[in-house]
Amino acid sequence: MGNFLKVSLSPHVHGGNSVKKEMYGVILAMIPAMLVGFYFFGLDAVRVTAISVLAAVGFEYLIQKFLIKGEPTITDGSAIITGMLFAFNMPSNLPIWIILIGVLVAIGVGKMTFGGLGQNPFNPALVGRVFLLVSFPVQMTTWPKISVLNFSMVDAETAATPLALIKEGLKNGESLSSLMEKIPSTLDMMIGHVGGSLGEVSAIAILLGGAFLLFKKIISWHIPVTMLGTIAVFSGILHFANPEAYAGPLFHLFTGGAMLGAVFMATDMVTSPMTHKGMIIFGIGIGVLTVLIRVFGAYPEGVSFAILIMNAFVPLINTYVKPKRFGEVKK
């Protein structure tokens, strides 16, 4: 074949970007947050992460090979991302069998039923997480108390997350100011010295990864900035209206999965809109829904639900929100 000249349509050069590069870029960006998780939650965190990544890759391989009977796709890195994101959303003391069920739902139902990478309407890791949250509410909301570099593998004490603490407290009629004293300082929350899922605790590590993704142009700024901005503004308005009932914007930004969701989950390429305008609408929607669920809903944390709900709106956004066409005649 080498003797023939190749004929193809232009362009004859390619930027060298590839799906693999994008995916491994995301994985690289998640490593700081993962290491912080390991630091605060010890071997348990390593165990949860390792199991979910291996399970995600394994399930995808098996489904691809025996059910779809297509070419293996596990090397593209997307299964690893799903596995890692799934682990990031888990309390580190979760039993193995629950993790396996969750990953199976994430990969099997969330991704492969729709045809694999690029076809799924919902973020697979979140599908898995929400499935577990409604199926095993007790296990999923029992958070280990953080103990720096605890590698002892004994069952650690458990503690509530700041969000749960506030929610429960307000329900029991405690005042917000007294509750705020019980939760860690904002600085602690930024570093990650706070209870919660293993990957969501450190805002700084997540933002570091986000900066890397932005620098590599794997994501654009639109979704994270509008989403966090909306959370800040909306919770700020509520706080300003009644400081005794509603916590302030800083609290909402740095607790729970807001950062993780904004940087790694809402920006998932497959399930986010295609245009910048659409991304802004998407980000605002997630922000509003997150605060609404956190403040008025039954669950203390609402990022996962908010992202999944907005995922459902993506096809609609893509249909109606178009980029500004060059030379469009204004009517």
Binding site: M1, F4, L5, K6, V7, S8, L9
Partner: peptide, 22 residues
């Protein structure tokens, strides 16, 4: 005899719009 190789999307119309054929 083949004289060249078509290396774009495998679609006859695209190929025919591109050139005479391989």
């Amino acid at each position: 005899k083949r004289t060249s190789e078509f290396d774009s999307a495998a679609n006859c119309t695209i190929a025919a719009n591109t050139y005479g054929g391989d």
